[in-house]
Amino acid sequence: MEMSNMPLGGHWVLVIIMIILATWVIYRYLAPQNAKEWRNAGLIQGFIIALYAEMYGFPLTIYLLTGFFGLEIPWLHMRGHLWSTLLGLGDVGAMIEMIIGLGLVILGLLLLARGWSQVYKAQKENRLVTDGLYTYVRHPQYTGIFLILFGQLVHWPTILTLLLFPVIVVAYIYLARQEESAMRKAFGQKYVEYMKRTRMFFPEIKNWKLLFKKG
């Protein structure tokens, strides 16, 4: 059977596998330590559950859009991509959408893993980390989270994930500001100077390539 003829939904074993894998990544590389970090990780886990439950389980968003709003969205896995359907781009659009979305997810995972590695080493040495990824942004792990979630919205948007995404972004902006307040108290003027020369989440355009360089 060709992939384009496979029915959407009902693959609950795959749903469980994907949720378990994504959950491992979340708690492995975010390593929440206090109530606010656990809350934010829980929001991301909610996003993941909502995403994969619809992607491989029950297509609630497609059901609502086709039934309630009367939009014609095919109930097929490879043809169920909302953006390409709504924009009339067909299978080619769905493939482009998938490539862009998954590309953003991969870049986000790289930032998340590398950022965690740098923080872990810095904590062991009890020092302020300002090299590597942190040369260009102050919170590369959170940048990675935003890229991962946005990539999933490009690849496979759902009503629930679209609603959760801005909530997660606001929650991590708030958490980042609290962390920076704590860092100013711990490192004083050194951290203030560091803040002046680096951006919070997204580097200057000229530094994007450097952000993803090896090393």
Rank of each mutant, 00 (worst) to 15 (best):
M3E: 07
R199L: 08
I159L: 15
E193T: 14
E72G: 00
G88M: 08
H155T: 02
I26E: 15
V13R: 09
G90K: 09
V129A: 09
L65F: 01
S117L: 02
Q118A: 13
M78G: 00
G57A: 07
K124S: 14
F68C: 01
Y172D: 02
I96L: 15
A31K: 06
Q178E: 15
L211Q: 08
R197Q: 03
L111Y: 01
M200Y: 03
A122Q: 03
M200D: 04
Q141I: 05
N40I: 05
T61N: 03
L211Y: 06
L153Q: 14
L109Y: 03
F69M: 10
T198I: 01
I48P: 04
M98L: 12
H11R: 10
H81K: 07
E193I: 06
R127L: 12
P7W: 10
T158N: 14
V92Q: 11
R184E: 15
E72D: 13
Q152H: 15
L128D: 11
N207L: 04
F68R: 01
M95D: 15
I173A: 13
I96R: 08
T143F: 10
I26F: 01
I26G: 12
W12S: 02
Q189M: 10
L43R: 04
P32M: 03
E125D: 12
V15Q: 07
A186E: 13
L51D: 01
S4R: 09
M18C: 13
S117Y: 00
I99Q: 07
F187N: 05
L43G: 05
Y142K: 09
I73Q: 00
V13W: 07
L102A: 10
T66V: 05
L43W: 12
M1V: 12
R199W: 02
G46C: 11
I168T: 02
F165Q: 00
T61D: 02
I145M: 14
G10I: 06
M78C: 00
R177K: 13
S4Q: 09
Q45G: 04
K209W: 00
Q189I: 11
F68Q: 01
L14V: 12
A171Y: 08
F201K: 08
H155G: 02
A171G: 03
E97T: 05
L210K: 15
E72C: 00
T85D: 03
Q45H: 09
T85L: 00
M200S: 14
I168C: 05
G132D: 07
M6S: 11
D131H: 11
I148L: 10
N207P: 08
I19H: 04
V137Y: 14
Y172L: 15
L102N: 12
N126H: 13
F69I: 01
M78H: 09
D91I: 07
G80L: 06
L8Q: 12
Y29Q: 06
G46Y: 06
H155S: 07
A122E: 07
V192C: 04
Q178I: 10
I16K: 14
S181A: 13
R79M: 12
W116P: 02
P203L: 06
W156I: 04
M195Q: 14
L128W: 02
